[in-house]
């Protein structure tokens, strides 16, 4: 298990370096920052001086090395708009986004798993048909539209829930549901097909031969086997959720990272965009590492492979 852990960890570090390189290169490719910072009539000498001041005249590998060192210290430079360190700006917004993403993750996993299991166990029943129609519908509706519809029905018409903002738990409901809809559908579909395959497997037949209760077979053996592919995609699901917050946060005026990123893109606040991309990437890479480890815990073939 330890060997497995280190091999995954090494991969994670390599991926982080790769992402940092991409962020570094794209930021250099998106134009000369000095031209943005200096007045239009700045002289050649002024530009040179500015480039030297920012370290842009050094060779690329030196620049990259400095970039990495700064990143390691949490220094992404100052936000052009807010005039405060980009990193602390990101960190102040991150918790709200994570609250949204993780709530949606928990909801989609629980609901998706349950619906998938019931659907597989009662194959071809009305529940199964409902689940399948639901999953197709949920996956084909754009989330901004779903968000607006939910606001119209539950906030504007029924006044059950607030339209937008983040002042308490009730503010969480609509955005989380909007965000979770697609992952519920994908978890449902994967659970259903994994469960059907498992219930058909020879080892389940042999468990029946042993005279075990059907409930026991389903909830102890079949579910655990069906979980393997569900866990395998949960890293992807989390990535999808964190990316998906960008739209949902805009619709519900949720004060999270997504909103900040959209603003920063519109105002070309490069340091904040860089910091946001890198921080979320590193976060996702570690989440995926955790998923891989969970995989090893649940499947001995991975652990001892």
């Amino acid at each position: 298990m330890l060997r497995y852990f280190f091999s995954r960890l090494r991969l994670a570090v390599i991926t982080i370096l790769g992402v940092s390189l991409i962020v570094f290169v794209t930021s250099r490719m998106s134009g000369d920052v000095t031209l943005l910072l200096l007045p239009q009539d700045a002289s050649e000498a002024d530009i040179k001086a500015m480039q030297h001041e920012l370290g842009l005249d050094a060779p690329y590998y030196v620049q990259y090395y400095k970039f990495l060192r700064n990143v390691a210290d949490g220094d992404f430079g100052e936000s052009l708009r807010y005039r405060e360190p980009a990193f602390s700006l990101i960190m102040s917004r991150l918790p709200a986004t994570l609250e949204l993403a993780f709530s949606a993750f928990i909801l989609s996993t629980i609901v998706g798993l349950l619906m998938g299991i019931v659907s597989a166990r009662m194959r071809s029943s009305w529940i199964d048909y409902f689940s399948r129609i639901f999953s197709i519908t949920a996956q084909s509706m754009p989330s901004f539209w779903v968000g607006i519809m939910l606001i119209l029905v539950f906030a504007v018409e029924l006044h059950w829930l607030p339209t937008s903002g983040a002042q308490g738990v009730e503010y969480l409901v609509l955005p989380v549901v909007t965000l979770a809809l697609v992952p519920i559908a994908s978890t449902l579909r994967i659970t259903r097909s994994a469960m059907l395959q498992t219930l058909d497997a020879d080892y389940v037949k042999f468990l029946r031969v042993k005279g075990l209760r059907e409930q026991f077979i389903v909830w102890k053996h079949a579910l655990r086997n069906a979980l393997v592919p569900v866990i395998a995609i949960s890293g992807l699901t989390l990535g999808f959720l964190i990316g998906g917050t960008v739209i949902v946060e805009s619709v519900f005026a949720w004060p999270g990272l997504g909103n900040l990123m959209v603003e920063s893109i519109f105002t070309r606040d490069y340091p904040v965009i860089q910091a946001g991309v890198l921080v979320t990437s590193i976060f996702l890479i570690f989440l995926n590492l955790a998923v891989d480890l969970l995989f090893g815990v649940i499947d001995p073939r991975v652990r001892f492979g």
Binding site: V209, G211, R224, P300
Partner: peptide, 22 residues
């Protein structure tokens, strides 16, 4: 169910898939 596994039992064809891998 009480009879199965207790008074009557069975061996399946492929041992590699007869047991739960987890």
């Amino acid at each position: 169910r009480r009879l199965r596994g207790e008074q009557m039992s069975m061996i399946l064809q492929d041992p590699m898939v007869s047991l739960d891998p987890l």
